[in-house]
Write a protein that binds this DNA or RNA. Structure first.
Ligand code: FES
Ligand code: FES
Lengths: 142, 142
DNA sequence: ATAATAAAGGACAAATTAGTCCGGAATTAT
DNA sequence: ATAATTCCGGACTAATTTGTCCTTTATTAT
């Protein structure tokens, strides 16, 4: 479905969101150990999220990552930042063109699945996730 | 979404289905060239479909592959034969457990998407696809 | 029987993805 | 200033997926 880097990225973003209440920063070490993701790889992925303006980073002691609250980014933004539009664009059977004028036998199915998932990912903002993760019994580690 | 091998497999199966009207066999050369898939790779993938009883093969002159009509296999069977249950099983965010008792924040979304796709793939049988491909203007090549 | 044809299967090569290592740059505390 | 901390970024390695090549085996036609 998504690349491993992407699922790590989603979980990382959710974890950081859940910890960036005030101006608290979370270090890559903590993210990696809490979510059980290789630390150096986590670092690479968080760098991508910084470049995509999803999280903000500061270096040095007490530094780390925090959610970029300026704009409200969504889980979809994380997916697009890491995996690009791969999942959502083009024929899922690899045909050169994907359109309702020239569809593959599963075109309608794929269009529905994709837009459905896209909508739901876009509906889950990271700032909202912060509360959800506390109020509900959701899990992003283990 | 699916591996490349899997999309090749689906298209290959559909092409063979569309050509196995009587007892006609389709060679790997034809499948590969018509669908623009590397021939040796096509061969590998069709071998998998043979092992999974989705198509039948015979060697020698006029040999090739034909749909195994004994049982009515579906596109889902092709997916399961090549990619296994990867797409449908386990947490899409890589958590060790996937259940409604211990869900990740996107669990409900993923469950819906997956079952929806699974149902639609299971509903598309390869023998039916034969007619669909002729009657409708579907495309499995290019 | 022999030769031609076509799938089966194993070993290998290329490409992509996943993951590591380490030196450098920024920030903070002493 | 210095040292400690923490992210950045490039180069590297490992694993997986994708794809090739070539030999063997089964089948058919002559
Ligand atoms: S043509 Fe295949 S998904 Fe649109
Ligand atoms: S727990 Fe993540 S998809 Fe079910």
């Amino acid at each position: 479905m998504f690349s491993k880097a992407c699922t790590y990225g989603i979980r990382g973003a959710l974890y950081i969101a859940s910890r960036s209440k005030a101006g608290e920063f979370t270090g890559v070490k903590e993210v990696a150990s809490k979510l059980d993701i290789p630390q150096a790889f986590t670092s690479k992925i968080l760098q991508t999220l910084v470049k995509s303006d999803i999280v903000t980073s500061v270096r040095g002691p007490n530094g780390g990552f925090k959610l970029n609250d300026e704009v409200s980014k969504t889980v979809l933004d994380v997916v697009l930042a890491i995996d690009g539009t791969d999942y959502f664009v083009g024929c899922a059977l690899g045909l050169t063109e994907c359109s309702s004028e020239n569809p593959c036998p599963l075109h309608t199915e794929f269009v529905n699945i994709r837009s459905s998932l896209r909508n739901r990912l876009a509906a889950m903002s990271l700032s909202e996730a912060r509360e959800l993760l506390e109020e509900q019994h959701f899990r992003i580690s283990g």
